[in-house]
Simulated scan of single mutants.
Amino acid sequence: MAGYKIYTMAFSKVYPHYVTKAARRDRTKDEVDEIILWLTGYSQSQLEEHLEKDTDFENFFAEAPEMNPSREMITGVICGVRVEEIEEPLMQEIRYMDKLIDELARGKAMEKILRK
Rank of each mutant, 00 (worst) to 15 (best):
G3K: 10
Y4A: 07
M9C: 04
F11H: 05
K13A: 13
V19F: 01
T20C: 01
A22T: 02
R25T: 08
E31R: 06
V32S: 05
I36N: 09
L37R: 09
L39G: 00
T40N: 05
S43M: 11
Q44A: 14
S45F: 07
S45R: 14
S45L: 09
L47F: 05
L47E: 11
H50F: 00
L51A: 08
L51P: 07
D56T: 04
E58Q: 11
E58Y: 03
F60C: 06
F60M: 06
F61R: 00
E63P: 00
A64M: 02
M67F: 02
N68P: 05
P69T: 06
R71Q: 07
R71G: 00
E72N: 10
M73S: 13
I74W: 04
T75A: 09
V77N: 14
C79M: 09
R82H: 13
R82N: 15
R82C: 08
V83C: 12
E85C: 07
P89Q: 11
R95M: 14
R95Q: 14
Y96G: 00
Y96K: 02
M97R: 11
D98L: 04
K99Y: 09
L100F: 08
I101K: 05
I101V: 14
I101Q: 09
I101C: 06
D102H: 14
L104Q: 10
L104R: 12
A105V: 04
A105H: 10
A105S: 15
R106G: 15
K108N: 14
A109H: 14
A109K: 15
A109Y: 11
E111C: 11
K112H: 11
I113V: 12
I113D: 06
R115A: 09
